[in-house]
């Protein structure tokens, strides 16, 4: 294969001493986004499992989608969740201006609204558990809880991260490292919203359509 050489070998530049910097923030956010996409593959496997186990035989004579799925409750959770994302958006607007107070207010809002989502979901599941609809009951319920709670686990982790970031914004300030973490958390927070879109659409809405 011929080499597509257009430079004159006698005068070609061999070294590039000035090129020592690379953009740390973009590098970090790209890596974290790739990590989130790998997480999306876990979510896909859980969705695939749910799709396979969402069958009459897999309920083993126990409760099916119609019994465990409350789409209206889930919608109130959705409102809270999207509001939490919007609050984080406010923090991002604050960051754009370099205003720590808006950042903290946005993070605090996301914390409260995200916590609210967890309360709504937790109450729903506590009621189901009291009626004996637990993951151990059947393959269908195992898949249902695994999928929905995997999203819930993201939220718990996200809340912990928000707390850490609030402390860092106060104590460290908006240094490049704090900024890239805020950007990563932004990606993470939006990403769990993506998961929820599919959980809400394909578990809650589709389940209410098909039922048992």
């Amino acid at each position: 294969m011929s080499q597509e050489v257009s430079v004159n070998p006698a005068t070609a530049v061999l070294w590039d001493p000035s090129h020592s910097e690379h953009d740390m923030i973009t590098t970090r956010t790209l890596g974290f986004w790739l990590y989130l996409l790998s997480d999306a593959m876990i979510v896909s496997s859980l969705f695939a499992s749910y799709l396979v186990l969402d069958h009459r035989i897999n309920t083993a004579g126990g409760p099916g989608p119609r019994d465990v799925i409350h789409p209206v409750t889930a919608f109130w959770g959705t409102v809270l969740l999207f509001s939490a994302i919007l609050a984080y958006g406010a923090a991002m607007v604050g960051l754009k201006r370099g205003d720590r107070r808006i950042v903290l207010a946005g993070l605090g809002g996301a914390l409260l609204l995200g916590g609210g989502f967890l309360l709504v979901e937790g109450r729903d599941f506590a009621q189901l558990a009291l009626q004996g609809m637990v993951p151990e009951r059947s393959g269908y319920l195992s898949a249902f809880y695994a999928l929905v709670l995997y999203h819930g686990a993201h939220l718990v982790f996200g809340l912990l991260w928000i707390v850490v970031m609030m402390v860092q914004v106060v104590h460290i300030g908006l240094t490049p490292h704090v900024v890239y973490r805020l950007l990563n958390l932004k990606l993470f927070w939006f990403f769990q919203g993506f998961i929820w879109i599919y959980v809400f659409s394909f578990v809650y809405l589709a389940g209410a359509v098909h039922g048992h």
Partner: peptide, 21 residues
């Protein structure tokens, strides 16, 4: 690191748009 300017002036931060959110 991003030198010579404040970190929040990074282009990825400047993408934030309140109205679009």
């Amino acid at each position: 690191v991003t030198k010579g300017r404040d970190a929040w002036q990074h282009p990825q931060v400047q993408l934030a748009r309140g109205g679009q959110y």
